[in-house]
Design a binder for these strands. Structure first.
Lengths: 337, 337
DNA sequence: TATAATTATGGTATCGGTACCATAAACAAG
DNA sequence: CTTGTTTATGGTACCGATACCATAATTATA
């Protein structure tokens, strides 16, 4: 691979002159510029950004460490991040942890060594160690979607408790009383917050808290499937409405109900947190609290870039994006029997 | 951020000594080792891998540029790649192009500048320019899943034509004659090859090629949905079996048939190429040709790493992985009427 | 005891690009 | 014609880690 010195030799100039041509900086005569450009083309010269980064102490790269890239929610977040980043000349490195803290730790180690300028993190597990490790290196960091205990770090997230509160409230207004909540891990803050929103709505409606109405598994389709079968088999009287902790759980619920021969919304109502993948429309159309994944990514990346470029300081700000209640066809008042 | 010199100063040794401690190289007295390790811990020192890479002319990093990370097929391929890579001490950078050649070009530019040691590429579009650009820099490259015209490059892929041939043959053996094929873009080699396998099987069975039995859209769920409705509305007599060009198309087919009130396999048979996401079991269980995504990633990465470390040369080898016909419940002989 | 081998540590140069400072030619203003 | 300014180009040093070579100090061997 040719270096800037090879180009310089071929064009009969000094390396610094080639540098000026590449970066359009300083004074260059037209004749020299052309000779240099020709040499670059002939040698297929590609500048080595490692040396630039070493010199400038910045890589113009940010890392997005995410828990489950298969979920289209996160793909959309990624798009927001990429758009905000390229606006400011940053590249994004995508890292998928599969909710595995060991993988996450490993990525952080490597990325710190590679002098990544900043981190966007969807923490796997509830261990705040990674966050502290990044902060110890004074590398800017923004946490997305989830909240971690015992650390002070900027967070950009959706209004999980508020959204689930409104969704529950909507079911209550329809006349439901036995509303079951099937959520993901309580080790993940969004899981806790969504259950919390549900509980608060139930309490505010003067209903007693029935712990067996709440099931916590994983944020996966299979888990939603299992929890649905479980709760319908064990709970009598059966709930008249099911709340899903995220989109994948909602898919599992729908499939389980289909298998059990229950119709939605005739026999039972279903509502979810976060829209289904657009390429997977449900039958019937699902009433959900929709998040704004693109906006989430955009704002998180902008916040991070603000810190990197030194415009904002790294406060402990928390940006909470509103969610939207989309009433579709999966809920109706329960039969009075 | 402290450098190796800061550590050296604190430990009262030369930078090279610290380097030896970090890399467990050369001779170090126990006392010195401990003083250095303490200094490292106190300063939270993290070695700068940019400078190492600059020195060694290698980054121990390979890039995986993929067309659609939302498809669990590719997530599994990624897992194979990561496992093979970490076996050999390489890190993987994941890049999602969304089938957009401009995004792909941009990634390649940046990654070449970052001195990426090798590329695993699922080409977006049929333009071979990217491949040539990588090869011009003499950076090792392996293409995954797809085939590109006009370039000599190692490829690791599934047996698309063979798989679709066997799947078609199976339907023919069940007695089907009007078999429609709903595939993705003909600009993608896998799309072409799968259609080719289907055609060959039909011809070998002595059936005339009916062009309107083949529809080409995109490898997306919506596209499968649209094509299904279209072909059932326009074709008379209707086909008795539908073949899906990939897993997402199969999902679209199933949804469309459900909407149209057609039962599988009672009213119509369906078979697909590539399994559905495990978290999305279909009703009824789909007969498919299953690929080996993990194996695909593993082999591609090993081939690439062989090139990087100089063990293999960059031949034009093509590794074709066999596929497996999984007969489940979505196909049965057509009604005789 | 002398010599060789082993152990332990450091100085200097290098990877590739560019900031900083220096130099010199071309041109403008007084 | 001198002085000042703009334009054009280059030399040297540096970012951080480490290979290479050198130098001691210690231990083993003759």
């Amino acid at each position: 691979m040719p270096t800037i010195r090879d180009v310089a030799r071929r064009a009969g100039v000094a390396p610094i002159t080639v540098s000026r041509v590449i970066n359009n900086a300083g004074y260059i005569s037209e004749a020299t510029r052309q000779r240099v450009e020709q040499a670059i083309a002939e040698l297929h010269y590609v500048p080595n950004s490692l040396s630039r980064s070493l010199r400038f102490k910045k890589t113009d790269t940010i890392a997005f460490i995410v828990s489950d890239i298969t979920n289209p929610f996160w793909t959309t977040v990624t798009r927001g991040i990429e758009d905000a980043s390229s606006e400011h000349g940053f590249n994004v490195i995508l890292c998928n942890t599969d909710e595995n803290p060991a993988k996450q730790d490993n990525y952080v180690t490597v990325l710190l060594q590679k002098q990544t300028d900043g981190f966007l993190l969807v923490p796997a597990g509830e261990n705040a160690g990674v966050v502290q490790r990044i902060q110890k290196q004074q590398v800017p960091l923004v946490v997305i979607d989830r909240h971690l205990k015992d650390v002070t770090v900027p967070v950009v997230r959706s209004d999980s408790p508020g959204g689930m509160y409104r969704l529950t409230q909507y079911l209550l207004q329809l006349g439901h009383r036995r509303i079951a909540m099937l959520s993901g891990s309580m080790l993940i803050s969004t899981g806790r917050q969504r259950v919390e929103g549900y509980r608060r709505a139930m309490q505010d409606a003067g209903l007693p808290l029935e712990e067996h109405l709440v099931l916590c598994g994983e944020f996966k389709q299979e888990s939603g499937y299992r929890m649905t079968r479980q709760i319908l088999q064990t709970l009598h009287p059966a709930p008249t409405a099911l709340l899903a902790g995220n989109n994948f759980i909602a898919m599992g619920i729908l499939r389980a109900l289909d298998d059990l021969g229950l119709r939605v919304p005739e026999d039972i109502s279903v509502a979810g947190f976060d829209d289904l993948p657009h390429y997977l429309p449900a039958e019937p159309a699902l009433t959900v609290v929709a998040q704004q994944p693109y906006e989430l990514g955009l704002q998180a990346a902008r916040l991070l870039i603000g810190q990197i470029t030194g415009h904002h300081s790294a406060g402990q700000e928390e940006i909470v994006l509103p969610v939207e209640l989309l009433i579709r066809q999966s809920c109706r008042p329960p039969d009075e029997r």
